[in-house]
């Protein structure tokens, strides 16, 4: 394989891996704090891409469109926790209540898909580049062509993981989250408003989905059903990373994206199968994930 091709495949894999990282971080933080994940995390991303599409079509400036998308998704995250998670926690002692959040979050994902279908139709849509009125802005890096948005998504994922790490382990808010994750009752006794923390992590997860949605839109063809595959891949990435710390998820996501790209190059007929098999083997050999031990883990 030529060196140029290797760089090309690595960069493409990195970009997709970065998207998986952003979605998986949302799953990680809610799972850490509440032991629940939003099965519609990919659909929140999808709503983010369609909101950007709508706002830019009606002529909103880029900054306004991004800010509005982040705000709307934040409100959706808050609503999700209040409607689909918190009411069920009151009934978690019943056998049905304990896992009902899977149904409610997946149900909301279906509702979101249908609402977007009603507004935009069931077909695919083109989402324009963020920083140019022209299509396909390519930058040459070491002989490989990268779209501007790909560079942006890679940089954004690394930055967000760094901020996330600092936030989780070096801020008061992060310590509150860790305390709630460790033991909600003790946290409450220490004066931490646990309900507020739980709502906060779902808002953070929704904002992460919005960021991923804004960045992925120009890179792929968008459609109302694009979220499910992303949710599944993000769950795999979070499982590889160990559901334990942001750095593990970053490495898990990058590994998965690159492996996906290389396997499609080596055997395109079964290109999507090999990364899933590799993930299965990793989880079978190390059920707690690659980076669950020997690194910061709040549990």
């Amino acid at each position: 394989m030529q060196i140029g091709n290797i760089i090309q495949l690595l960069s493409g894999g990195l970009a997709m891996g970065a998207i998986y990282v952003l979605v998986a971080l949302g799953l990680y933080i809610t799972h850490l704090t509440t032991h629940r994940v939003n099965f519609g995390q990919g659909d929140f991303l999808m709503v983010g891409t369609f909101l950007m599409l709508l706002l830019r079509k009606v002529g909103a400036p880029l900054g306004v469109a991004i800010a509005a998308t982040l705000v709307v998704l934040a409100v959706m995250g808050w609503l999700l926790e209040r409607i689909a998670i918190r009411p069920l926690d009151r009934k978690k002692t019943s056998p049905v209540g304990a896992f009902s959040w899977i149904l409610t979050t997946a149900g909301i994902a279906l509702i979101l898909q249908n609402v977007i279908e009603l507004g935009f139709g069931k077909t695919s849509q083109y989402s324009a580049p963020l920083f140019s009125s022209q299509r396909d802005q390519v930058v040459q890096v070491l002989g490989a062509g990268l779209f501007v948005e790909e560079i942006l998504v890679i940089v954004a994922a690394i930055l967000i993981v760094a901020i996330f790490y600092a936030f989780m382990f070096h801020s008061r808010w992060g310590k509150n989250i860790q305390a709630v994750a460790f033991n909600p009752e003790s946290a409450k006794l220490l004066g931490i408003h646990t309900d507020r923390v739980k709502t906060g992590v779902f808002i953070i997860a929704a904002i992460l989905a919005a960021v991923a949605g804004i960045l992925i839109g120009p890179l792929v063809t968008i459609n109302p059903h694009m979220g499910l595959v992303l949710t599944i891949k993000a769950l795999i990435v979070a499982a590889i990373g160990g559901f334990a710390n942001p750095v593990g998820i970053l490495i898990g996501g990058i590994l998965f994206g690159i492996f996906e790209s290389l396997s499609n190059y080596l055997d395109s007929g079964f290109g999507d199968l090999y990364p899933l098999l590799a993930a299965l083997i990793i989880i079978a050999v190390k059920p707690s994930g690659l980076f669950s031990e020997g690194r910061a883990d709040v549990r």
Partner: peptide, 20 residues
């Protein structure tokens, strides 16, 4: 002769091979 699953989002690896 390259293939791809129906739900893929990127065909860069396949198109690299066709180019080469």
């Amino acid at each position: 002769m390259e293939a791809a699953a129906p739900n893929v989002t990127d065909l860069t690896p396949q198109m690299v091979k066709l180019r080469d």
